[in-house]
Design a protein around this nucleic acid. Structure first.
Lengths: 109, 109
DNA sequence: TTGACATTTAAGTTTAATCTTAAGTAATGG
DNA sequence: CCATTACTTAAGATTAAACTTAAATGTCAA
């Protein structure tokens, strides 16, 4: 059975193994087997994670002989980027003197 | 029982209700009850979501009389921001002529 | 064509997340 | 002190995620 039927990018990146796979794919296309290597996990499990990433639109596959080559499509991460940036104004401005001044003047209620 | 014992910000933002709560908190402190309102969910469930956010360091509580006031701490989102920005170079440059040129010259491997 | 390889899919188990109801706690107002 | 408000915590049910092993699929190479 398919472990998930999700298309949500936030869910897709919630699992560390899936994040690691995306990072690996920044280097370029990789065969499923290569992506599996660093994980102490069955092949099938990896395949299922790849499916979650595919459903979220974060990777695409093509067949190359007996390999399946996965390629990154980072675009759906823009949704995450956009969402996080909505909070940028609320990040602490650790090394920013103006920020400290404003924080002191207008303290955290 | 605590529904989660997680401290992972990626997991914390994976649930749409939790994301909605964070967005609501951008406006400023809110009592737990106010945060619960827009969801067709039991009070207890909301409380549990708030706990996940708290464990991830995304919110802090203080008691104000019989209310519990939750306040946003966006800082842990910087980890997400940082992570996503690692992929910025891979975003499609839809409206960017240079980008299209480079994509054509140096096609998606 | 047969067998090995590189996977995916199916089936089922285990673990974890999410929810509910009910009981517990802490502060306020009468 | 007692009831009410505003929650949290506990307990347990339900659903979903994440694994595993085994079988199926498609390709290559002899």
């Amino acid at each position: 059975m398919r472990p998930v039927q999700d298309t949500d990018v936030f869910h897709a990146i919630a699992h560390p193994a899936r994040r690691a796979m995306l990072i690996a794919l920044k280097q370029g296309e990789r065969a499923a087997g290569d992506l599996a290597e660093p994980f102490g996990m069955s092949f099938a499990a990896i395949s299922q994670h790849l499916r979650v990433l595919e459903d979220a639109g974060l990777v695409a596959v093509r067949r190359d002989g007996r390999f399946r080559m996965y390629r990154l499509d980072a675009d759906p991460l823009r949704e995450v980027e956009r969402w996080v940036e909505e909070f940028a104004a609320h990040f602490e401005r650790h090394l920013d003197a103006l920020g400290r001044y404003l924080d002191a003047k207008h303290p955290k209620r």
